Amino acid sequence: MEGTRVMHIVRFADSDATVHCGLLVDGVIRVLEQDRIADLLALSLAELRVLAEEPAATPVAAADVTLLPPLDGRMEVWAAGVTYHRSREARMEESAERSVYEKVYDAPRPELFFKAVPWRVVTDGDAVRVRPDSSLTVPEPELGLVVNAHAEIVGYLVVDDVSSRSIEGENPLYLPQAKVYEGSCAVSAGIRPVWEVPDVKALEIAMTITRGDEIAFKAAISTASLHRPVSELVSCLFDGQPYPEGAVLATGTGIVPGMDFTLTPGDVVDIDIAGVGRLVTPVR
């Protein structure tokens, strides 16, 4: 990183509603030749880094465009579960099948599940949602790994894996309904390149939920508490199936409110991962 420069790979719509990709640094976007994030993820990590370091051209002010979720094409969002001790405790607390979560925490194979396709993902400023048939819903702040078609981690995102604890707690087989629905997946608007994050094992993840003028919940944790190496999670994700246009893998949460807390419409969820980005979403 040069000085205090902070780079993000972004996807945005210009004043004509044409979608582009670019590199955002200090409020200015350098437009890239590739119009899709998926095309960038077809490149190797080395090729992407060379592209990012080319001389600036075609600058656009970030204030003049609309930042979009940095996913498109045939990208997929997956997530890992029970990767922090707090998550293990919370899942056991809510579930009628406690042993399922106790066993997977230390099992050779991690829990991985499908979360969203690009057109279902929202970003900073957009709303996340609670299911009308859920009595207990929580945000789950997570470090997201942006992985290219070659199974290389090329960047990081802030991810909110919004989840219905009441539905999953009834039966683990209800996991897709608890995790996959409209407004259940939000990501930060910029991908932080992997080469600009010196130590992924020491990032603070902080979440504040405000309700009106009050703080309803606040907590923080470090990725140092992540139970499995991120390289192991990526290896398991790619074991058995390709991702020709890349994927985002959320690495699980270590922040889970108590059973007496649920999101309500009007709440605002603010997630910050040091060195990666920030994601602020209202709740509908």
Rank of each mutant, 00 (worst) to 15 (best):
E2W: 15
G3S: 14
H8W: 07
I9A: 09
F12P: 04
A17M: 12
V19A: 09
L24M: 14
I29D: 15
R30K: 13
I37V: 00
L40M: 01
L41R: 10
S44A: 06
S44G: 13
L45G: 14
L48H: 09
L48W: 15
V50K: 03
E53K: 11
E54I: 11
A56Q: 08
T58Q: 13
A62S: 09
A63K: 12
D64C: 02
T66F: 04
L67N: 02
L67M: 02
P69E: 05
H85D: 13
A90Q: 00
M92A: 07
A96S: 11
A96R: 10
K103E: 13
Y105T: 08
D106N: 14
K115L: 13
K115V: 07
A116M: 11
R120V: 13
R120Y: 08
V121N: 07
D124F: 01
G125Q: 02
V130N: 04
S134N: 15
S134P: 11
L136V: 15
T137V: 11
T137Q: 08
P139L: 14
P141C: 06
L143F: 00
L145C: 03
A149P: 05
A151D: 10
Y156N: 09
Y156G: 09
V159S: 02
D160F: 08
V162I: 01
I167L: 14
E168H: 14
N171S: 07
N171A: 09
Y174E: 05
P176C: 07
P176V: 06
K179S: 12
K179H: 10
Y181L: 08
G183L: 13
V187N: 02
V187F: 03
A189P: 03
G190I: 06
P198L: 08
P198E: 14
E204D: 10
I209E: 03
I209T: 05
T210R: 08
I215Y: 01
I215L: 02
F217V: 03
I221M: 08
I221S: 14
L226M: 00
P229C: 15
V230S: 15
L233A: 08
C236M: 12
L237V: 00
D239Y: 07
Y243S: 06
Y243P: 07
P244K: 02
G246H: 07
G252W: 04
V256W: 05
G258T: 01
G258Y: 01
M259T: 10
T262W: 05
P265M: 12
P265N: 07
D272P: 00
A274D: 09
G275A: 05
V276A: 05
V276K: 04
G277I: 07
R278Q: 12
V280S: 00
P282R: 15
